[in-house]
Amino acid sequence: MSNSEGKVLNFDHLVFWVANAKTASSYFITRFGFKPMAVRDPTEERQILSYAVKLNKVIIVFESPTTVGGEIAKDLTAHGDFVKDVAFEVQNLEELVRRAKKGGAEVVKDISVLKDKNGSIRYAVLRTYGDNTHTLIDRTKYTGIFLPGYNTLENDAISELLPDTNLLYIDHVEGNMADGTLEESASWYETNLNMHRFWCVDYSHDLVPYSCINSASVINQDETVLLSMNEAAKGLRPTSKASEFVKALGSSGVEHVALYTDDIVSTMQNLKARGADILTWPPTYYDLIREKLKDSPIRVTEGIDALQANNILIDFDERGYMLQAFTKHLQARPTLFIEILQRRNHRGFGAMNYKWVFEAIELLDATADKKIEEKTEKLKLKD
């Protein structure tokens, strides 16, 4: 592909709009192992405090208003703390913006320049689903730590005391869409950002009854930026996680960020040591997995006992497997969590686990019912 083509190259950073940037960034430092990176102090023109934290290739910026009113305060009232912006490093910013305008995308901010002593960056901002945006960044003429206007933060002493979490990069960002907008949202990326559909192994299974969602995914030309989207679908449960999310957030938005590790067992052990709040699963799930793997050619290097001890789920087919674990929601509203994952020749999102966890809960309920019956029978015999 020629350098003249406009395309998304990588995830650059994520922006979270939060009530208190100082404490939210501290939570990611203590619980998830991020390091303080840079701060942008408020000014008369820009009454926003921005804290950037970094872990390997993952950069997250937490922004809070320092005065009454303004867009951030308005959105925080509507949504609570949430992921506002997913920023991409891009090639040929002009061509991408031209394409987006032609495709009918809403341009929140046309091509602009930020400068300091370390050079300049050029950027533009597009609106995507809900109140979310994508900042497109050309940083080829910038040598500073992050972005113009930011000053370096000193390392936090706690980093020396706690174990590394080994979270390497963003595997994917997943959003939940308002009913009936999934196709339109996925197509937006093809039309405006030169991305294409990503067809993964998950989509070859009919898992809607268990997941209660329809899904679509897009990926960039170099297959380094993966975005997944869901909307509610009718299934075995009375409601869908997608519709529950949209109701809680008040619009479509980012439901989770998946961070990649190449050693998920030690990552989960170290997250637990740091006090991260991790979702747990019924023991019947691991009983099911042991049964299913008996007839599989797959050999799980980590061992099922280690997965069970660390609340890790597994999805697999005849070619490979992927391992995933989840934090609980990170804020007051049930609208954002972190996924931790590792892949071994498997490119899905763990969709089979909707079915397997569902089956495990049913097994657990059946076991509990049986115990109640047995207890009742014993009481009858005593009488």
Rank of each mutant, 00 (worst) to 15 (best):
N92V: 06
S159A: 03
M177C: 10
L161D: 14
K84N: 15
L114Y: 05
S159C: 03
D116P: 06
V97L: 05
L147M: 06
G175M: 10
Y150M: 01
I111R: 04
Y189T: 12
P163Q: 00
Y169H: 10
A178K: 13
G144C: 02
N92S: 12
V86D: 03
V83L: 07
Y142E: 03
D171M: 08
A178Q: 10
G104D: 10
V173D: 04
N118Q: 08
L162A: 04
Y142D: 14
E95F: 00
F198R: 06
A105H: 06
T128V: 09
R98P: 03
T191E: 14
N194V: 12
T152G: 07
M195S: 01
A87V: 11
L167M: 12
D171E: 11
D131K: 05
K109H: 11
I170W: 07
K117R: 08
F146T: 05
R122Y: 02
N166H: 13
D138Y: 13
S187I: 09
V86M: 03
D156Y: 05
I137E: 12
N155I: 09
S159R: 01
G180D: 12
T133K: 15
T191G: 05
Y150P: 09
I170C: 01
I145A: 07
S185L: 12
E94V: 07
R197M: 06
L114T: 04
T191L: 11
F88N: 05
L93Q: 04
S187G: 07
T128C: 08
E174L: 06
I121H: 02
L167F: 13
N155A: 10
N194A: 11
T140I: 13
S187T: 11
S112T: 09
T181Q: 13
I121V: 15
Y169I: 07
Y189Q: 05
N118F: 01
N166K: 02
L114S: 04
E174S: 12
D164P: 11
D138N: 15
D116E: 06
L162S: 07
R99A: 10
S120H: 03
L167W: 12
L167G: 13
E183A: 14
S187V: 06
V90H: 08
L193Q: 10
R98C: 08
E154K: 02
K109A: 11
V113K: 01
E160R: 06
K109W: 13
D85F: 03
N118Y: 01
M177Y: 15
